[in-house]
Design a protein around this nucleic acid. Sequence first.
DNA 1: TGACTTTGAGAAATCGGTTTCTGTAGCATC
DNA 2: GATGCTACAGAAACCGATTTCTCAAAGTCA
Lengths: 325, 325
Amino acid sequence: MARMIDVAREAGVSAATVSRVLNGKPVRQDLAEAVHRVVQELGYSPDRTARSLRRRHSAVLALILPDIENPFFTAVARGVEDIAEQAGYSVVICNSDDLPDKESRYIQVAELENMAGLIIAPTNSEPSIDRLIAKGRPVVMIDRTVKQNVDQVTFDNVDLGFRATQALIERGCRRIACVTGPVSASTARDRATGWRAAIADAGLDAPPDYLTHQSFRVEGAHQVIAQLLDLAAPPDAVVAANNLSGVGVLKAITERGIENDFCVSVIGDLPFVTTLLPKVTNVPLNPRGLGVIAARMVLERLTGLDLPPRLVVLRETASSPTRAL
Amino acid sequence: MARMIDVAREAGVSAATVSRVLNGKPVRQDLAEAVHRVVQELGYSPDRTARSLRRRHSAVLALILPDIENPFFTAVARGVEDIAEQAGYSVVICNSDDLPDKESRYIQVAELENMAGLIIAPTNSEPSIDRLIAKGRPVVMIDRTVKQNVDQVTFDNVDLGFRATQALIERGCRRIACVTGPVSASTARDRATGWRAAIADAGLDAPPDYLTHQSFRVEGAHQVIAQLLDLAAPPDAVVAANNLSGVGVLKAITERGIENDFCVSVIGDLPFVTTLLPKVTNVPLNPRGLGVIAARMVLERLTGLDLPPRLVVLRETASSPTRAL
DNA sequence: TGACTTTGAGAAATCGGTTTCTGTAGCATC
DNA sequence: GATGCTACAGAAACCGATTTCTCAAAGTCA
């Protein structure tokens, strides 16, 4: 493997000059050309580790997700990757499994490996990003919001909950339950808030039992639906606060054979749907866009943007395509 | 951020001794204790970039996957991560999108970032891993096999194709088509071979049209099914060679409203199934296990194992749980 | 006791770049 | 023509660890 010093010798210049040429700093024309020629010849490319050591950060972005098996988050990853790649950054994807401990560990890895920036869908409202921030590394929160004053990109979750519920009300449902995620996730709380608002708005009522917090995974929703349906006064419809909750709900009602009588409104897109159930509607989301925007924000910070932290709220407009009931 | 030299000064020893203590090399008891104490006090942890530079490789494993949005591969990633994490390695997940160019680029990133090892589901039968191999970095191929003589872990794909087809034959199907992946993927070819063998074995026949190569994604299978069903002599059943092909097929037949008359046998597990179709069967796979084994193989090589390359074929036994027809 | 090996810690070299420092050449100004 | 500036290339310091080299102290054996 050729080193910079080899290139320098071959081109009859110093290593410093090679470095300058490669980094676009001003160098005499003929020397620059010689360097470029030798670089070509030797197929030289600089050692990233050495560069990182000196520059104090690498050309890698960390992306920490609560569930890599959730298509919503893999779509986010796609968005991040596409933007990062264009800018010459690679993306490391890490799984926090929605566990604060695992999350902290990966944040630490991002710090110790001197990664250039961090995009994270936090497991709770106070992820341990202080050291990273102190080091001046750009950090962007996605999907879920946190207390800290950092860049954040999120959907208008209250509105999403409201609209998902409204769709059921328009459909004629009156006893609408809500299957949402863990209390630690702002999305879970906010979407439930939207649900409650829509219920109140329509002059309807929902007993306390109708709000259930689960894990935002298939199994959680699948189990809780059984309890809901076994209530003395069971709901006639359910708002599933994310895609996998939606899958769990659909699974449960299909098993019970009531898929044609029970309305479901899902926030997000159902992954890999093979069958179209007439009583199922959803509020589509654009997770890839979330990733794209977050990546751009990190890159902006990396190129020196020095503004106070921003909160970006993506409002999916009412004109977004929604599957009809 | 404390550096090793700070620890050394504080503990009254040299940096070399601190390094030795942290790397488990023999050091006098009392000095070792002093170092440990200071490390605790300062919350010191060594800079990984500097360590990588000197050691010539980092504590990161690269995992290159053809489609991060396919739950099969995210499950593989889980397996890899779980093992790697125990051994103190982090895992970088990269998307090749089944494009050789993108794949090469990521292989290069793995090389330039001096990643410790590479696990890859290759896009074709000759990925450009030569430089990595030459550098002595462990490389393990997963899922799909290649010509090169490197460690490989795969399923018995011919057998999988055979069994998936046999299930349909037992079910009474006689005109069985095969929707498989791109010719470049050994899995796609091998599973089709198994399909053909089972057809021949049963004394059945399949016209050339019945074998279709697609992208191993939902859309590919979805489109091709339309063509198959419009043949003069359409099939009465289909073997879908991977999970997403299965989704595409199911989607297509559901749209046509023939989901109760048309048999489908899927190799792999259908992701996020919400409805149980009686005419659908599948051959379950264990992608997580694939990742676990591949990760172990890389780690073995990293700890000095010097054996000729191995080919590990995972045979899912006939007793594996299979969803009944 | 003296020569010889072993042990182990510190000094210094090293990994491969980037960046500061230094010195020279070229040009402008008075 | 002397002085002052600017531009720019090379030398050297530096990033923060690991590892080789070196040397003193302790242990071994004749």
